[in-house]
């Protein structure tokens, strides 16, 4: 299992190849499109993380001391970032998820996606991912 740190470094390296915002956004759109489909049974009200601009569904499962995340959004750019977050945090141990700083988002120049003004649910999604980790840890 790769560590959160390792995966973050991988992503930073991948994004360093892009010169323009168009390439970066194109890649995010591709990531969004290739995100595993969230089953309808999980696209329920309880799993919604509301944002004014786009909304996110997040489902988490406990798998052998690690947590597996599944998520979806109605906006493709949001989905692209979800794909990155899942790649980094899914199948990791609760303690590591709780401690994750997720600096890569800033390093690859997408920190604006997490600003409150975007109101796209991503910031709340990270918080919710960590809350799940905290809950599983204490179970």
């Amino acid at each position: 299992m790769k560590s959160i740190q390792n995966i973050e470094e991988e992503i930073v390296e991948e994004f360093s190849m892009f010169d323009s915002w168009i390439d970066k956004y194109d890649y995010l759109i591709d990531l969004g499109k290739s995100l595993d489909i969230l089953k309808d049974e999980f696209k329920i009200k309880e799993n919604i993380i509301a944002g004014c601009q786009s909304q996110v569904w997040l489902h988490a499962e406990n798998k052998n001391d690690t947590i597996e995340y599944h998520a979806d959004s109605d906006a493709i750019m949001t989905k692209g970032i979800i794909a990155l977050l899942i790649r980094v945090l899914s199948n990791q141990r609760p303690n590591d998820i709780i401690d994750a700083k997720l600096d890569f988002i800033k390093t690859i120049g997408l920190e604006e996606q997490l600003s409150q003004t975007r109101a796209n649910g991503l910031k709340s999604m990270i918080k919710q991912m960590k809350i799940y980790a905290l809950a599983y840890k204490h179970n």
């Binding site: 915002w21 004014c52 493709i76 750019m77």
Partner: peptide
Amino acid sequence: NIHHYDLGLILDKMGVAIRTGH
């Protein structure tokens, strides 16, 4: 098939300020 949020983000990158949402 395109979400308004995605459209707003990309137009912003091209300098066009529009509003998206409800």
